[in-house]
């Protein structure tokens, strides 16, 4: 495997924890600044300047948190599973660490999506929880995250834990479309067409532009949090190596 280098060079550099630590150290402040600017700007735009929805009034403004967190919860799972696959195939330590670092962020995003969905549901549906297809799928996604995290913390050996979690994350990834489909199908079977939270015919630009800003801001935030956790993980796993010793002595 080592002889055949058929992936771009950065891919192999990424495999080096030290290189990864250094590059994330350089990227971190930029992403942090971008996340702060985008999230604050997006939130101000969303709360102050975006027009109120003609049906839902101002409770519509919750969309600017609900949708980005839901999108991020799903992308984070995807990233986690892909990192797991890379870790399994190329035995790449950094990928194992990415998997471990992405799980808690994704789970907290799922919690945020669920909570904002529930809070939004109260003025829209009149109850805190409705077994709506999207909310239910998000709840199951949250359970999948909990499973990966529980497995990862239950196994003591770090590389075994990472490999086992990777298998579970991949099984979950195969299952997500099936779960989504089955839940949507179950939903139409049991409920008359209700007022959907997020499905809007042709949202005007002054409504979706702040949403776009928030989504990009959430991605930047995710990158920041992921890099922070990844760097912690690198230091912990590489604590016996020379370069980490040097790093510790320097500080």
């Amino acid at each position: 495997m080592a002889e055949k280098k058929w992936m771009p060079r950065w891919f192999y550099q990424l495999a080096s924890p030290r290189w990864c630590y250094e590059i994330t150290g350089k990227l971190l402040p930029w992403f942090f600044a971008a996340a702060v600017v985008l999230l604050i700007g997006g939130a101000v735009w969303a709360l102050l300047f975006a027009p109120a929805d003609y049906q839902q009034g101002n409770s519509f403004r919750i969309i600017y948190l609900h949708v980005p967190s839901a999108i991020l919860a799903q992308s984070a799972y995807m990233l986690m599973a892909v990192a797991g696959a890379v870790g399994l195939i190329w035995k790449m330590k950094v990928a194992d660490m990415v998997l471990k670092s992405a799980a808690p962020i994704g789970a907290s995003m799922a919690v945020l999506a669920l909570a904002t969905g529930a809070i939004w549901g109260k003025p829209t549906w009149g109850s805190w929880w409705v077994w709506d297809a999207r909310l239910t799928s998000m709840l199951i996604l949250f359970f999948l995250y909990l499973g990966v995290m529980a497995l990862n913390s239950a196994i003591e050996n770090e590389s075994t834990a990472a490999q086992a979690s990777a298998v579970l994350a991949l099984v979950g990834l195969v299952n997500i479309p099936i779960i989504k489909y089955s839940v949507e199908w179950w939903n139409t079977l049991h409920q008359p067409a209700t007022f959907k939270l997020t499905e809007k015919p042709a949202m005007p630009a002054e409504m979706w532009l702040p949403l776009l800003v928030m989504v990009i801001g959430f991605y930047c935030f995710f990158a920041v949090s992921l890099m922070q956790r990844l760097r912690n993980e690198i230091i912990w796993r590489e604590r016996r190596t020379g370069w980490v010793r040097e790093l510790l002595n320097k500080q």
Partner: peptide
């Protein structure tokens, strides 16, 4: 927030 203040601010606070 047009009567929906509790919901909007609760969401953003949590966020």
């Amino acid at each position: 927030m047009g009567g929906h203040g509790l919901y909007v601010w609760l969401s953003y606070g949590l966020g």
